[in-house]
Design a protein around this nucleic acid. Structure first.
Lengths: 206, 206
DNA sequence: GTCTATAAATCGATAGAC
DNA sequence: GTCTATCGATTTATAGAC
């Protein structure tokens, strides 16, 4: 057996434990939220001691950051599926509804990405915030580009595309955010709300 | 000096300390946020021991609740000033801009009311959530009533008024919420955003 | 009413044995 | 690599002296 082979096996085993840690952390996150994610609980779940976790992650924040990147990748992938739609105005509407659906279906992940103090958001938008090659910034640019398309097609009035994109984003974020923190107060179905709100916004921006 | 007078003086002194506690708590809240509001810090600020505070408030939650009620009363009062505007559609626009301004100018209070887990929101909307005599529920009814007026005037299409009211509310909440948690990512001016968004919504709901 | 002192429960992180 | 043991810091809340 080659020296390489042995090293590879060790490396494989090492990253397997890393994956176990992330799996356990993900389970805790989706069930109980980021506040409940403690090193002790992760350790219990993987049946190792807390100290072992520190061999794979620098600290608790690093784990949260990894989960945050994962979750935002899923969100952006789902929203990105709307790219197949030709009509840019219709694409905006579908993006809005898809975004809200993700938030409702993944409440704790959504809170982690967008409703936790901004240290974590940097992991999605880049440390130089909105640095062009980070996924969050790319997703936003994709939205802004769709707005530009919609303006070219005459569906939307010619305002600053970033302003329009932020108006759309913040509107759907508001639905998810309110639905997640005060579900009892926001009585309407979030999906229906999203449909009404985004339709009205797109029409009103014409 | 009457027996009553002595009791009144004692009661006055008692409620003075209660006010001092609330004042100190309010200062800490607006400066450092609800998470930084600890019994020890309040005690330091009023130059009493932590134990003394428990003679005036059952626990930390009771203080947060009092601050939350105060803050929401201010918000609803400011939003309520728009009642003077006759045109209901214009009133909706002004309410939206006023709401966003409050949130931007009182970030920690806003977070306390609407972005903290819902235990506190019950203090604004009633324990039987949305019970009709609580200020938050009244404020929402006022918004819904304005929507009905706007529908009667022909400015807004006849959808369920609660649905429309929630669409408007969640949109402006989204602006405030994003501005407070990721100011660096939401680059536009929140006020400008509010103007564009609410105008478009009201127009699109016609 | 007010204090001191402290209980009791967390937590993140690390030193050092094996 | 892994564990035990523990440090050190934080919090809310209370018991009991004065």
């Amino acid at each position: 057996m080659s020296r390489m082979g042995i090293l590879e096996r060790k490396e494989r085993k090492r990253s397997e434990l890393r994956e176990q840690i992330l799996n356990a952390a993900r389970t805790i996150l989706t069930r109980d939220g980021i506040e409940a994610l403690t090193m002790r609980k992760i350790a219990d779940a993987i049946e190792y001691s807390p100290a072992t976790i520190y061999l794979h992650f620098e600290n608790r924040e690093a784990i949260a950051l990894a989960l945050c990147r994962e979750a935002s990748a899923v969100l952006f992938a789902q929203v990105g599926e709307a790219a197949a739609i030709e009509d840019p105005a219709e694409r905006l509407r579908v993006v809005g509804r898809t975004y809200v659906r993700y938030g409702i279906e993944h409440p704790e992940e959504y809170k982690l990405i967008f409703m936790t103090d901004s240290a974590l958001m940097e992991s999605v938008f880049g440390q130089e915030l909105m640095s062009p090659d980070d996924p969050g910034a790319q997703a936003f640019e994709y939205l802004a580009a769709t707005v530009v398309e919609a303006q070219a097609s005459g569906a939307i009035r010619r305002l600053d595309p970033r302003l329009v994109a932020e108006a759309l984003w913040s509107a759907v974020h508001g639905i998810v955010s309110l639905a997640l923190t005060c579900r009892e107060v926001l009585t309407s179905d979030p999906q229906e709300l999203a449909a009404v709100q985004v339709d009205a916004l797109v029409r009103g921006l014409a």
